[in-house]
């Protein structure tokens, strides 16, 4: 089955929007509804849309890096966020915040870093599964 042209063009515009929306969701997760998990899922829908509307190759090209690389990256960020507390002599995962605000995240600290890790891990896992399933179907 040839993908429809409208869906294909539409997906190209939708994908960056979904990516933006996912960053928005992820960046507010530590104080408001949202978070790394849902953010990662929304980001991967963008790439999944590309994969189905256009081709898996197009989606992989848009992602630039191997989807599997995001899994250790995300988990390492999450692990690293937990270890920070050891430098202050506190138990694993104790929350610390930067004293100033930064763009996008506003407040940035241990929970936000953990969320960022979850974001990448979810993105990596979801896309690896989707790309594998889509490739085997063809």
């Amino acid at each position: 089955m040839r993908p429809s042209v409208i869906l294909k063009i539409g997906a190209r515009y939708m994908q960056p929007l979904l990516l933006l929306a996912s960053i928005f969701l992820m960046s507010r997760g530590h104080n408001d509804p949202g978070g790394g998990f849902v953010g990662g899922l929304v980001a991967s829908t963008g790439f999944a849309l590309l994969a189905f509307a256009d081709s898996v190759e197009a989606a992989k090209k848009a992602l630039r890096f191997d989807s599997r690389s995001f899994i250790p990256l995300g988990l390492t960020l999450a692990l690293g966020s937990g270890i920070i507390a050891f430098f202050f002599g506190k138990p694993f995962m104790t929350g610390y915040w930067l004293p100033f605000t930064i763009p996008i995240f506003k407040y940035f600290g241990v929970p936000a870093l953990f969320d960022l890790g979850v974001y990448f891990a979810v993105l990596g896992v979801t896309l690896t599964i989707i790309f594998n399933a889509a490739t085997q179907e063809e």
Binding site: I71, L75, T76, L79, F86
Partner: peptide
């Protein structure tokens, strides 16, 4: 820097697994 002893038997396998995934090739 103070690391509670009880968490080390958890962190070490996790870090080992992550390094292994990073070196998967």
């Amino acid at each position: 820097m103070k690391i509670p002893l009880i968490i080390l038997p958890l962190l070490i396998p996790l870090a080992t697994a992550l390094l292994g995934v990073a070196l998967r090739r």
